[in-house]
């Protein structure tokens, strides 16, 4: 009885620190992807983080698909739209192969990697040298995980809703 009382009193004090309604309302963003040409990337803001919207070339898609998942330092898809155990195949990193939507936060210490740099043509994080491939998967460097794929869906061919 006492424990129930304590938890009941404590919970509001703990929950008030969780994201407020105002923050949650901003947690969803719609992005018009039509201005992004093939071979280009734009960075938009989503939940305070940079979001990479990359329009991949056929070459980049082919390179990503050719990689063996067992060669990857992180074998998991890190895709919020899929179960946690999904493997990091290129197909599990996006809905449409030419559109790569990734959270632009290096999984090492949170810096923003630079696109089209590094040995794998994907991203290079200048902070500590992590290198990601054209599917945003970690290949070299201290980052422990692939770049996160956020929860998103295509509202139309030219518009996505993230979060």
């Amino acid at each position: 009885m006492g424990a129930v009382g304590v938890v009941a009193v404590a919970w509001p004090f703990i929950d008030e620190m969780n994201p407020s309604a105002a923050v949650l309302a901003l947690s969803s963003t719609e992005v018009d992807i039509s201005p992004v040409a093939v071979g280009q990337q734009v960075v938009v803001k989503w939940r305070g983080h940079p979001l990479f919207v990359r329009h991949r070339t056929a070459k980049e898609i082919a390179e990503a698909k050719a990689v063996n998942v067992s060669d990857l330092p992180d074998p998991l898809a890190r895709n919020s739209n899929l179960p946690d155990s999904a493997p990091a195949t290129d197909a599990n990193r996006e809905f449409k192969p030419e559109w790569l939507i990734l959270v632009g936060v290096c999984t090492h210490l949170g810096c923003t990697p630079t696109g089209f740099e590094g040995d794998y043509g994907g991203w290079l994080c200048h902070c500590h040298g992590s290198q990601y491939d054209t599917a945003g998967r970690i290949r070299k460097g201290p980052a422990p995980a692939n770049l996160q794929v956020p929860p998103y869906s295509f509202l139309s061919d030219t518009r996505i809703k993230v979060g």
Partner: peptide, 21 residues
């Protein structure tokens, strides 16, 4: 413990990243 770390950081931040909250 999967998801616990992210839940804790979101709770600390009051948002999905360091921000006004």
């Amino acid at each position: 413990i999967p998801h616990l770390g992210t839940a804790i950081t979101t709770w600390l931040w009051g948002d999905f990243a360091v921000g006004d909250a």
